[in-house]
């Protein structure tokens, strides 16, 4: 159902992919961590390697909780579908898109 407006009402999304150039937004959710109140949002290059993404963004964030151990992160999913990422694969090639939700448990 479209919005009811007095005249043509059409504006672009203020979060659309093109605003981020070669990068994109990626949401990361540590599913079973009560200390982490919400999933985090990162800006990452589409061509960033998975291992670099973890090392540069996900792990430093997860270390907000001093109990975080990188080696125990498992059950990875992207947008609800389980996957076993190749560390050298790029985010784009792994199917991580603009505003995808990457999740894990530990």
């Amino acid at each position: 159902m479209p919005v009811k407006a007095i005249s043509n009402y059409s504006f672009e999304s203020r979060s659309r992919a093109e605003l981020y150039g070669d990068d994109q937004l990626v949401n990361v959710w540590w599913v079973n961590a009560p200390m982490m109140c919400a999933a985090a949002c990162f800006r990452a290059p589409r061509e960033m390697a998975w291992s670099d993404f973890l090392a540069a963004m996900v792990y430093p964030w997860a270390s907000s909780d001093p109990g975080f151990e990188a080696s125990r992160a498992s059950s990875w999913q992207v947008d609800g579908v389980g996957f076993s990422p190749d560390p050298s694969a790029t985010l784009a090639s792994l199917g991580v898109r603009h505003k995808s939700l990457v999740s894990f448990k530990s």
Binding site: S15, N27, W29, M35, M36, C37, A38, A39, A40, C41, F42, M57, P60, W61, S63, S64, D65, L101
Partner: peptide
Amino acid sequence: FFFQGLPQLCQVCQIPM
């Protein structure tokens, strides 16, 4: 303890999810 990053926000209410 701080959340060392930025949170995912709800598109409508804009509260961290």
